[in-house]
Design a protein around this nucleic acid. Structure first.
Lengths: 351, 351
DNA sequence: AATAAAAATGCAAACGTTTTCATTGATCGC
DNA sequence: GCGATCAATGAAAACGTTTGCATTTTTATT
């Protein structure tokens, strides 16, 4: 009798007819425990029982309730990814790779973006923690202590993406951004340019941009070129803005080369040059960092440094899954992704 | 005594020292029930009690466990978004908007991509259902029956994005893609072009593309232009591929205008023309659909039809939250987003 | 100040699984 | 063919909340 009441209530809750593990068990003539085992560790149940359960489950359209399971399990099956922005090419390729790889591990991804606001990041992490995520990937090493502490206390596996640090507080999967900045600048210098402008994003709360910029400036000093403050411009990751800024600088300062914090910025610069009738690479060399989708196709094709976003995403997903499964949170090695200078048609020797 | 055992076990499970609702209750000198009420419906607890609980919670760094809560609650606080691809500009702007709006509603987003594979879509939906999502947004109306049924049976709110349908099986938030295709083609025709090529993606499992293409072809027949099969090309949403295909067609068929299934394809066409030294719009008109980020900045700026991706994302998030809260799954009205022809410099009168 | 009504809180039973422990059934060596 | 081992299953106690109902405290009314 009481069974009926409870069942009815459940039905109402979950919709018309969503069966639970006990309904499946009843139909398969086994106990709920066995059904549970069937789903979590099939090999411990005898083949013919397996078949019966499988049949019952599909016939009834059973879908497991991982939330209920997670209460014992410690694992929710979801992994978080916290990025500055989702719709920027910089991250969207990585997000996609991360998500796809997670799917292969039978995990789901919770993503959220904080727009470079560390406080918002904290509340996002809190919100993820409320959902019992099995691990989180953050971008870079610049985070509020609160954020890192919350994760540490609950011993949730964390890794930092993109950044590179000799002595990181969070293990990372990333590339040496300073080197990337150095290399691309060095390439431009090797082509004979000395009047070089730089378009980099705000380095506040953004260690990747900071490293790249520092690397770029180091190449300058190494070559004994005095860097002029007026040639060091701040520019967000946005084509429209970079195009506007580039137009300004190209009509006033007239540098012979522009090094950009990433490819999106460089795209804007190329468009600006086009509109002003400045020939690339004849009158102006342009270089980016990142090698985004489209950088090989734009005309002229863009000289840049390849930072394999997809690989970072996949490796991050693998690592996080491994960390959560093995419980080895501290023995994780930092993973340095190699970068590569890609010389294309947007840069050339100074005439 | 037994309390100690259980507590120790929990600690081990959740990490070193993550307090639960009962620990907070103890410290605040109230019952767990009251703490629960405090978090779910603060106004039912007396102000001074509220203060005590708040204090205890922050001091102990308590983070609620929504999974446990969800077992009674019916709501998990997560909403799913299933898209064909994540890293394509077409969707990433929408995903970002969806996510941000969800965050404002104190919900989190589970995203996954299926790469236009309906079977994979089904298993993604299953996986989301296992996580007890409160609602799902899908893209378009082309889905396997299994997918829709699984959701219906559990009465999980669903909406379809982007698509438009007179008589949709899923309520939608989208734009009239056929009209968009019609308008942009019509514009090109009005400029005097008759030798028009079309670059559209595979319309299999993609009602948006299908509608756009049909709209475009309708504009053709309405203008009594015979559409030549050889001018109707299939091209994925990818700059590299569209550039290659465009180069081919521009050296053989030499159309005076190319209408593209979306802006990404159009970007590729513009690059192709550049490389071939074909002047736009002098010798070739190019038009896209979508008005993506960058389409206003590319040189020449792209004539296209604006389909406000961000608005679709935000509205979808709002609608889904409302549906899940109110339980009104069936009274939801379809929401048509208006499109707008944006004439820029990539199209011009036939000389 | 006493009583009725309302508001706040506590108790304990859910929620749908997983998992330990115990039990049953099968298998094997002799 | 018999006990001994091992594999497969079942019964029941968790997991950390929420919530209906009962109880206490507060407030309003006279």
């Amino acid at each position: 009798m009481r069974d009926t009441v409870s069942t009815m209530k459940r039905r109402q809750r979950t919709g018309k007819g969503a069966p639970g593990i006990v309904e499946v068990a009843a139909r398969a003539q086994v106990s709920p425990a066995t059904v549970s085992r069937f789903f979590n560790n099939p090999k411990v149940v005898r083949p013919d029982t397996r078949k019966r359960i499988q049949a019952a489950a599909t016939e009834m359209g059973y879908i497991r309730d991982r939330m209920a399971g997670a209460m014992h399990n410690r694992f929710s099956g979801s992994i978080g990814l916290v990025v500055p922005t989702i719709d920027n090419t910089i991250f969207s390729e990585m997000i996609a790779a991360f998500s796809n790889r997670l799917l292969e591990h039978d995990r789901t991804m919770l993503v959220a973006s904080h727009n470079y606001d560390p406080t918002l990041e904290v509340s996002i992490i809190r919100s993820l923690l409320e959902r019992r995520i099995d691990g989180v990937a953050l971008v870079g090493q610049d985070h509020m202590d609160t954020a890192v502490d919350m994760l540490r206390i609950r011993s949730v596996p964390v890794i930092a993406l993109w950044g590179y640090d000799e002595n990181p507080r969070i293990p990372f999967v990333g590339a040496n951004n300073a080197l990337a900045g150095y290399r691309v600048t060095r390439h431009v210098i090797d082509d004979g340019h000395t009047n070089i402008a730089f378009l980099f994003p705000d380095t506040h709360n953004n260690d990747r941009a900071r490293d790249r910029k520092n690397g770029a400036l180091k190449a300058l000093t190494d070559a004994n070129i005095v860097s002029d403050k007026s040639k060091l411009l701040t520019c967000p990751y946005d084509v429209t803005e970079s195009k506007a800024i580039a137009k300004r600088i190209l009509t006033s300062d007239k540098p012979s080369a522009i090094v950009c914090g990433n490819d999106v910025i460089a795209h804007g610069v190329i468009y600006a040059a086009y509109e002003l009738g400045i020939h690339i690479p004849g009158a102006l060399s342009v270089a980016g960092i990142g090698d985004f989708k489209g950088s090989a196709d734009i005309v002229p094709s863009l000289t840049t440094v390849r930072l394999p976003a997809k690989r970072i995403g996949s490796i991050a997903a693998d690592t996080l899954v491994h960390m959560s499964e093995s419980g080895e949170h501290d023995t994780v090695k930092n993973q340095v992704i190699e970068t590569e200078l890609i010389v294309r048609q947007s840069t050339g020797k100074l005439a």
